[in-house]
């Protein structure tokens, strides 16, 4: 499914907007209709805005539900606006003409997608594809730029989000450009994931493998076969153990040595 018309997926109807009743989308999502009543907003950088700014945002956003596998925007496309990810996860990738794909990040709820292109007016730099059913609040470019001019608090939060994205991009360049081997990159990725899960201090951190070997390969710039071989090797050396889709890091020290082998 390629992003086309805004209302092509399931846009929340104006009737539902005003009744305040929770709406169930076809994708099994409980749509958060109003940012003003969203319980999660205090935990999310962009969303934690003063009431006046939130009210303005409410009037320009389109709450939309997408199924898994929907493309929000494509690399090279003229920027139409921003997408605030309320629920679900989105894969951000860049692609070569020969079809080789590099996944930069899996965006989590609270992230604003398409920000830099919308602000600068340059084409989207990445492709954004949902990997879960998602709720997304879309804001048209001209509305968003006006909103930023009128609400300095929102402008500041956008600067913070852009800073994080820039830091991530630098991290990605370092990992791709300065890592010696695919094994080193995979070890770094597994340690990173375990630290995000709050498992970093545990003796044997656990992490849920939400991506396929193909997608992990696209995250570290290698082939699916290499990732499968590396996992087999890690299991053989009892550095990791697979329990269904959960991966247990049995020997964190060995994984750290692999990650810092350059």
């Amino acid at each position: 499914m390629v992003a086309g018309r805004l209302d092509a997926p399931n846009e929340v109807s104006s009737a539902h907007r005003h009744t305040g009743e929770p709406m169930l989308s076809p994708y099994g999502l409980d749509i958060i209709e109003s940012c003003l009543t969203c319980k999660m907003r205090t935990e999310r950088i962009f969303c934690d805005l003063p009431t006046s700014a939130l009210q303005s945002f409410e009037s320009i956003k389109y709450a939309t539900a997408y199924p898994k596998g929907a493309v929000l925007f494509v690399e090279g496309q003229a920027p139409r606006g921003i997408f605030v990810l309320c629920k679900g996860r989105v894969k951000l990738s860049i692609c070569a003409t020969d079809g080789k794909t590099l996944i930069l990040k899996i965006a989590e709820p609270g992230e604003v997608l398409g920000l830099s292109a919308t602000v600068s007016g340059k084409p989207y730099e990445l492709t954004a594809e949902t990997i879960d059913p998602c709720q997304v609040n879309f804001v048209k470019r001209e509305d968003f730029l006006r909103f930023l001019k009128e609400h300095s608090e929102a402008c500041f939060k956008v600067a913070e989000q852009l800073s994080e994205k820039y830091n991530n991009a630098c991290h990605e360049v370092r990992s791709l450009g300065l890592s010696h081997s695919a094994g080193e990159k995979l070890a770094k990725l597994l340690l990173e994931w375990s630290s995000k899960n709050g498992e970093a201090n545990k003796q044997e951190p656990r992490l849920k493998l939400a991506l396929t070997h193909e997608e992990i390969a696209q995250m570290i710039g290698t082939s699916r076969e290499t990732v499968t071989r590396l996992f087999a090797d890690l299991k053989k050396r009892q550095i990791v153990q697979a329990k269904g889709s959960t991966l247990v890091i049995r020997n964190k020290a060995a994984l750290k040595v692999m990650a810092s082998s350059n």
Partner: peptide
Amino acid sequence: SQDLHIAYDRVRSVGL
């Protein structure tokens, strides 16, 4: 935003 565009371009050139 401009810095980010340049950084993504660098990711592209290094990674792809």
